[in-house]
Design a protein around this nucleic acid. Structure first.
Lengths: 223, 223
DNA sequence: GATAGTTTCATACAAGCGTTTGAATTGCAA
DNA sequence: TTGCAATTCAAACGCTTGTATGAAACTATC
């Protein structure tokens, strides 16, 4: 217990700082100061800075992926193995968006860290990142089940656009807020998710897809 | 002249390396090696590394913005002051996408550099970046002229989503290519632009907007 | 062709980085 | 308690970074 309190203090501090400032500006000395531990503790517990980052990334991406797949499975089993497309997309972008922009501070750091990691592509992460492709393939497969007639290439573009909108919204929420003079409500996470899901459904060929009582046009107020 | 041949050699080398590897991994020594000049030349001609980056960013963003506004103006004056919404969006995302993924090497470096700059947000750039908001406001205004009835908040979300798709496509084109096993053709830049424009138009409330000769639907549904 | 002003060059510098070290401290079993 | 392993700590290491320096090489005007 007290054994790895130092370990987890380092992990949390690193995650918080990386999430906030990115990988470029955060040194080991910043991390240990934030964690309130000695400088050498990082190398003692993790071996090197790169291994710290890698461990952080692996554990967090496993958590995010698990959350996504849980939502997906729930939706698919509710629909007898075939979820409506909007539910699939919601399972894809929901966990990340709720994590980044929701109220939970701990999850917020984790989600923001993942966004940073997906963008800045620092060396130790680049090598592990290939696994994400496999994870996304499972969503591509689920989308294919939801939209049986749709050519594969459209599935991939739709998936790509959905992630693009979700990530950019997190990454540059500040710009959107300033650009819109606060008119775009970034605290309404659920509304935002629905907005992104709705646009993605349209991108995939519109409302013809599912039963989906109310896939309304994207350009409606949130929710 | 021979006077600023060193200057421009440094600028080009820096742009190329930053575009390729990001800001974190490129040192002044890398840049001067690529440019074939002496290490001290950077400080002699630019004063500091930060000022080099800032000058690069300012000059390139002016060029990109000019290109966008030219396209916008051409479209608006062709329509008597009011361009169809797809033309406005095309002027917004076209220059960057053509720059990044097109065949022109020089422009490619410039556009990729701008994407990096918009993501990694290194210190010297962060301060200047506010101007981009003003530039985007001009596009928001043009979109408002194209879609007079639409609430402002929808305009901003549409603008945001359009940029999100364009940027993510550039940034992570490799992932999309691998995910789709090469089925998504990333060499067809014009097709890609039309795809993003079409989805953005849908996001803004559907096809009701323009004549829009042959904006083929983003996704051809099976039926 | 001598001179003054630019520009280039090799080299050095201080600061910050990740990492290592070896001694001090702690926790726990016998 | 004593003994031993695990952990923490202050200090230093070697290396790379951006920057500064002063001499050398160039360019152009007279």
């Amino acid at each position: 217990m007290s054994t790895d309190s130092t370990r987890t203090a380092i992990l949390n501090a690193a995650e918080r700082l990386y999430a906030e400032r990115g990988f470029g500006d955060v040194t080991l000395r910043d991390i240990v100061a934030e964690a309130g531990v000695n400088l050498a503790a990082v190398n003692y517990h993790f071996g090197s800075k790169d291994e710290l980052i890698a461990e952080l990334f692996v554990s967090r991406s496993l958590a995010t992926n698990r959350e996504r797949l849980n939502e997906l499975k729930a939706a698919e089993s509710a629909g007898g193995g075939r979820a409506p497309i909007d539910a699939v997309l919601r399972a894809l972008v929901g966990p990340t968006l709720r994590g980044c922009l929701g109220p939970d501070k701990q999850r917020s750091d984790a989600a923001r860290f993942m966004i940073r990691a997906s963008i800045e592509a620092v060396a130790p992460i680049r090598k592990i990142k290939n696994r994400e492709i496999d994870h996304l393939r499972r969503f591509a497969a689920a989308m294919r089940r939801s939209l049986p007639g749709l050519p594969d290439v459209e599935i991939y573009w739709g998936l790509h656009f959905a992630l693009a909108m979700a990530h950019q919204t997190i990454r540059d929420s500040e710009r959107l807020e300033r650009l819109s003079d606060g008119k775009c409500d970034l605290d309404d996470v659920d509304g935002m998710i629905e907005r992104i899901v709705a646009v993605s459904v349209l991108a995939l060929g519109g409302n013809a897809a599912t039963d989906a009582g109310d896939t309304k046009p994207a350009a409606r107020r949130g929710r």
